[in-house]
């Protein structure tokens, strides 16, 4: 379980806090979608929730982050990384530029942990298979497209096998097929008990995966409820956020006097994305 109590978090050199006051708890096996307009503080919250801020980024957190009941204060970044995996939104900066092949890139984290070769191979093969990128294994990471780099960055995170995950726009450069693979891999991790925080602009990825949506504005939580309740909340639209296609179609149908079966609608949208 992740539990953040943040009275305020301030970046280095800044005087104004970027986040807080807020409190957020994410349970085992729970998927929380984090949304909000630009500059709402979503990425900052992701960094603080993963422990990367202040451990790596610096700054001052007035409050506490507990991972599975343990206070993370003073814990080194590499220990935090094994407990909460974090992937930033720009895939180009997520690759190490130290590896000759995608295989070695995905293996970098487990290699750094000093795991046995058998364990590393098992983890890397599994991560590549989960995201369907085995054919990239021998490619040079510097010559990947944005979408491929994003999948490799996520595979690198999966190979670390953290207990919990914070992903900042993990599908921003992916096509529908890639997004579906990521979604499937994440759903599998959640089934295994990981707490997952998904920072996204695209509500469609959240739809069906996140039962709970948290909306952030000016560094504070303004909505925190079940996904459908949030997507239907007037403040959601007021903040300029767009609900998923399923909800929009449902509303459109309702305004035209047509009742759409939500399950059949979701299945039809999924089929559409597949084709």
């Amino acid at each position: 379980m992740l539990h953040l109590l943040c009275r305020r978090y301030t970046y280095p050199v800044m005087t104004e806090p970027a986040l807080g006051p807020l409190e957020l708890a994410v349970d085992h096996g729970e998927v929380v979608g984090l949304m909000g307009p630009n500059e709402a503080g979503k990425t900052t919250l992701g960094l603080v929730l993963s422990g990367m801020a202040p451990a790596v980024v610096g700054g001052v957190l007035d409050g506490s982050l507990e991972i599975d009941g343990t206070d993370t204060r003073g814990q080194p970044a590499h220990e935090l990384a094994q407990r909460v995996g974090y992937v930033a939104q720009n895939p180009a900066t997520q690759l190490s530029h130290l590896s000759r092949t995608v295989y070695e890139e995905v293996a970098l984290g487990p290699m750094n942990l000093g795991l046995s070769r058998d364990e590393i191979v098992e983890r890397v093969d599994d991560a590549l298979a989960r995201l369907g990128i085995e054919e990239l294994a021998l490619r040079d990471p510097r010559r990947l497209s944005g979408g491929q780099a994003q999948l490799v960055a996520i595979a690198s995170l999966l190979a670390m096998r953290p207990s919990h995950l914070v992903l900042d726009e993990p599908t921003s450069q992916l096509d529908p097929a890639g997004s579906r693979l990521v979604r499937r891999a994440l759903a599998e991790l959640v089934r295994q008990g990981a707490a997952l925080v998904l920072i996204e602009h695209k509500a469609d990825l959240m739809d069906g995966l996140c039962r709970r949506i948290v909306v952030l504005d000016h560094g504070r939580i303004v909505l925190d409820d079940a996904a459908d309740a949030v997507f239907g909340h007037p403040d959601f639209l007021r903040l300029g956020l767009v609900p998923p296609a399923r909800v929009r179609l449902h509303r459109l149908g309702a305004s035209a006097g047509v009742t759409l079966d939500p399950q059949r609608l979701a299945a039809a949208l999924d089929d559409g994305a597949r084709s």
Partner: peptide, 19 residues
């Protein structure tokens, strides 16, 4: 990029396995 490296335990001291 440094943040990404840290999130993959690059700051860890001790034995590292080379493939």
């Amino acid at each position: 990029g440094s943040l990404a490296l840290e999130s993959r335990a690059s700051g860890r001291h001790g034995a590292r396995t080379l493939l």
